[in-house]
Design a protein around this nucleic acid. Sequence first.
DNA 1: CATTTTCGTTGGATCGATTCAAATTTTGCT
DNA 2: AGCAAAATTTGAATCGATCCAACGAAAATG
Lengths: 358, 358
Amino acid sequence: MASLTAGNRRPVRLADIAKAAGVSHGTASNVFSRPEIVREEVRDRVRAAAEAMGYGGPDPKGRLLRAGKVNAIGVATAEPLSYFFDDPFARVMMAGISQACDATGAGISLVSAANNEQLAWNIQSALVDGFIVFCIEGGSRLVELARERKLPFVALDLDSEDGSVAAIGVDNIAGAGMAARHLTDLGHRRFAVLALPFADDRTGLVSAEQVRQATYAGTRDRLTGYLRELSRVGIDTSKVSVYETANDVASTKAGLETIFASDAPPTAILAMSDRIALVALEWLSARGLNVPDDVSVVGFDGVPEAAVSEPPLTTIAQPIAEMGRLAVRAILESDGPVSRQQLPVELIVRGSSGPPRG
Amino acid sequence: MASLTAGNRRPVRLADIAKAAGVSHGTASNVFSRPEIVREEVRDRVRAAAEAMGYGGPDPKGRLLRAGKVNAIGVATAEPLSYFFDDPFARVMMAGISQACDATGAGISLVSAANNEQLAWNIQSALVDGFIVFCIEGGSRLVELARERKLPFVALDLDSEDGSVAAIGVDNIAGAGMAARHLTDLGHRRFAVLALPFADDRTGLVSAEQVRQATYAGTRDRLTGYLRELSRVGIDTSKVSVYETANDVASTKAGLETIFASDAPPTAILAMSDRIALVALEWLSARGLNVPDDVSVVGFDGVPEAAVSEPPLTTIAQPIAEMGRLAVRAILESDGPVSRQQLPVELIVRGSSGPPRG
DNA sequence: CATTTTCGTTGGATCGATTCAAATTTTGCT
DNA sequence: AGCAAAATTTGAATCGATCCAACGAAAATG
């Protein structure tokens, strides 16, 4: 049978049933939005007319224009839509966002697009009261687009130096420092870093110059945190390999190959995301290296998967869900000054880190 | 700093900048929607005015009303919003939906609500071109609400006998039959069933009478499929315990306790969802029972987690993502007859099933 | 019975854009 | 210059509701 929603077309508006019921459109509107102020007899007549004509209730499109508020927040990313359901970090974040939205009755609109033009259009035409912007790759462009909409928006996990952007994030330098400190305390002296992207579309060992020109301040800050802590115990940080990955399996494995091709391989790996760290765990195990006896690994993020890996991953946990909740609140109550917030991170020690051999 | 989106208020409309630039609103509109038909000089003038007045581009609220199409589909469920990001089945489904939406540039609006009133309102006021309804608990109410909107909608995983509802699902009877058949072929003769809900807010062993009065036809069909196949090999199905769970950890464990309290415990468990099956695996292992030597377990759904459990789970895989994709297409091309579709299921044999001991 | 109140209803204004036929200006050609 | 064709611009109509001041009728009050 056909989609059964369509008699033919549906040009049946509130005005139509008002006419059919012999009342003004004002009254007809009241029947639906404030039935208590309409006389019962009239109310029933209008409802009967609506029923008879197959009226589906006041069209939100019309209401919206008058009301002004959509009661939904947009969550935007430059990744494909499925990112929200696949990526562990995104999922925890979305859970936090969901919770805050549920509490206030707001809806969630997922906004994304593969190509840039589509993305621009989608952001420009999203029916939302504000945006939460997921800043992964292409973050700055997203922020730019969101800002153009002149709607409240909050950037998540972005450490742009642009102070005019409201952002919720963590202290990457301090967090990375905690990770490095944990490993130096255990006695490690030979390190390698598996980094998130410093710039778009590039992977491989990075030079100091490339770090200086990083597009992604968050990545740079984490590296700063690592290296600062390492130099405190006298390690020559110029000898620490920093391999830039795309936060995916392939580039991470390539990085590990590179790093372990050295004749003085590291005893400890600092991974800038749990995702990278988990790939490393797998790669090391396949390679026959024991974690943590041969190599220690410390991640960053604190996604749930990190707790159940083999071995469980030591990591710097961000309050991911809380960040999501805060972002929603910042948008819905976007009257007061929201500005940038930094939430605390926490070192969670699990099985993937231990003293170096010997 | 303040939310920086608000100079004060934003009463700056297209008409305002039209006036400022000294053109009609028709022309001003064209500058944004079809810039190529406006003379360059005028175009620049209007754009300059927009820039100067802090105009954020044509408000989609206004455009929407005129255009009629929202270009977004709503995904509705009676669970809290976080369900979409937590539940493995939902996540795979959403991945399929995402993919189809990405391909067509449509957005996704998540619609849900804890309490029923809020849910009704949210559905009535959702700005979408159609609904995909996740029919878990409270499915019939959801379908009812969606239907009242008179928008195209598709029910997922619903086996209501109501033929007037467009639905996409699988042949539950046949699928369950395959699961049972697999186990009887292996030689099993003592079974227990861990069922999904037959009705709301109830768990425990179910009677034939309760099955007959089931609210959820899908659950009933799966049970029918199981039992029919079992009786084919001469098993007295009246002796098979059927424990109704809430598809969560607590009720599943309670069911297992009950089932294994018997003096003739089953050698095989038919679980109506992978989620239930995975809990069973864990419980059995904690109880010191070996899977599959002591007890075989077969799930239903084919979620990714089932492939990596210990042991990997034998299950009846539904084409979950494909169902999501089809649902989106059914809504976006809701001209032709969509009606109900049944997709094939597949038995995937993994480590959780084997011949009974002895 | 005259006068307030109260209750329900009406219809115009408004939300912010897009569309399109008609009016106007430019351009192209002879 | 004169005129047709092409390119731009205009302004009214429309999308589908909600809001609200004003109004008429019924009920309460003096």
